[in-house]
């Protein structure tokens, strides 16, 4: 378990869809044009049910406790931080395979076209190092987004969770609970948009087929070597062909080394 567990608690009923959180994120993290690390989704008013108002739902990477993106990464470049529980990307280790992007049920990851590697929310790591909150949290005019350490009972996020037990919503895909660390207070809409994680065929083939094949081949080879070693240790040697006692200058039969092309390996 991490020493801390950073999380975001969102009262989506406060969101007015101003999208200041998205603009602040782009500015703070130099997110390339056309890409976003966070979002505001909206639910259309359902007049037939007497719902005359729509609903806006801020979101972003959920920094899950069961992160399917981490499971899809072959190098461990994306991992859950042991210090604060955030799901982060080590850009120096990311090889840009893209496996993690479709493995996220929330579409929180994208390929940053400037660095050609995976990118996503890191709770504004650079700002946090300076003691600041994530840009989206700082800029929200209605304070719909609250950020904090759930392991600290005095944090506002932990207090909100404690006060709202029984009316917390976590958005998950129908068949995969990624245990997101993004909590919505009370009613939030839309709710059925997370999709099932879909790691690329290449990664599924690697874990499901190639890895067992390789390990079986190596194991069989190792067993073969052990069998040969056992036979060598416990049986008499066959007549040697070691040429001991012969002069080092002896030459090729026939016409000597000239018979053999110098290029033979």
């Amino acid at each position: 378990m991490p020493n801390k567990q950073l999380a975001m608690v969102i009262d989506s009923s406060r969101c007015i869809d101003c999208k200041a959180c998205m603009a602040a994120c782009i500015t703070a993290n130099a997110v390339p044009v056309g890409c976003n690390r966070n979002w505001v989704k909206d639910a259309e008013p359902d007049l037939a049910k007497g719902a005359f108002r729509g609903h806006f739902q801020p979101g972003g990477c959920m920094h899950c406790d069961n992160p399917t993106c981490v499971a899809a990464c072959p190098t461990g470049a994306t991992f859950k931080s042991p210090e604060d529980g955030a799901v982060v990307i080590d850009r120096g280790l990311c090889i840009g395979c893209g496996n993690c992007i479709p493995a996220c049920p929330y579409g929180a990851r994208f390929r940053n076209p400037a660095i050609r590697k995976a990118d996503k929310c890191d709770y504004c790591a650079a700002r946090r190092e300076q003691g600041l909150s994530p840009a989206c949290v700082d800029t929200c005019p209605t304070k719909a987004r609250v950020f904090g350490d759930l392991s600290d009972p005095d944090s506002e996020a932990a207090r909100l969770l404690a006060e709202n037990k029984g009316r917390l919503v976590r958005l998950v895909a129908a068949a995969t609970d990624t245990k997101p660390n993004m909590y919505y207070l009370g009613v939030t809409e839309p709710r059925n948009w997370p999709v099932e994680p879909a790691p690329p065929t290449a990664m599924a083939a690697m874990t499901g087929l190639v890895d067992p094949l390789v390990k079986t081949a190596v194991a069989l080879s190792g067993l073969g070597v052990l069998a040969m070693l056992g036979r060598q240790l416990f049986t008499k040697p066959t007549p040697p062909h070691d040429g001991h006692g012969h002069a080092p200058g002896d030459q090729t039969p026939g016409s000597g080394d000239a018979d053999r092309p110098d290029n033979r390996s």
Binding site: P74, I95, G96, C97, G98, N99, R111, P200, A202, M203, A205, M206, V210, D211, L213, V214, K215, A217, V218, L220, S221, G222, G224, V225
Partner: peptide, 23 residues
């Protein structure tokens, strides 16, 4: 990008099988 994903898989496969022979 799919090429990179498959390169990871094939790299692992090729190294693994040659290593089995290397033993």
């Amino acid at each position: 990008v799919w090429m990179v994903g498959w390169s990871v898989t094939l790299h692992y496969l090729a190294v693994g099988l040659v290593f089995a022979g290397l033993l």
